[in-house]
Nucleic acid binder design. Sequence first.
DNA 1: AGTGCGATTGACT
DNA 2: GTCAATCGCACTA
Length: 212
Amino acid sequence: MGRTNALRPVRHRHNHRPLARAELPIDTVSLARYLIGKILVRELPEGVASGRIVETEAYVVGDAAGHAYRGMTRRNRSLFLERGHAYIYLAYGTSYMLNVSSEMPGIGAGVLIRALEPLEGILIMQLSRGIDRLRDLARGPGRLAAALRVDRRLDGLDLCRKGPLWLRGDDSEPGEIGQSMRIGIARDADRLLRFYLLGSPFVSGPRSRNIG
DNA sequence: AGTGCGATTGACT
DNA sequence: GTCAATCGCACTA
């Protein structure tokens, strides 16, 4: 309340440009926070599907929970690309996870995209997931990938360029961002590296985890 | 070559 | 709440 920019005219026009790499924070934690509220766009033969990013996790340099911790492998090499590239892997043999590489070239770190608020192409996402309920379409990293038909074929893609999968800016005011421990990891679990849009029903995990 | 184990999800008691 | 599915990778031999 009482914020000076509250009197500025609000632009309702959509921003249709990809995020410029130069505007991405170079630090992994800053990027994880920055991506909250941005739009993830998937272009498919049958149309465009997109959603607002409402939940992310940072996997930082030197992080024992990060896939880059033991160096580069065939699977994780995209983590070492310049910030803004897709790192996609198969978790538990069942679910694909979408990450955004987050550091300078040669440095392995990334941000996991954990949940989206569906915006465009909701029918495409419903058909891809085999469910109707809007709230569950992209609530969780594996569900999100399934909804947008993201798999290893998109690994290494530059998300700062229009293409099959890319990141779009948004002019609307971002809501308040909450912070918590990351979900589903054993090592370095106490660090507050998860970010989410406060009050959003599209954030994964139990409600109680997403307060404060 | 064999074993153990995940940055998860959906089905089920 | 519990649990299996399923596969790439790290590790041992």
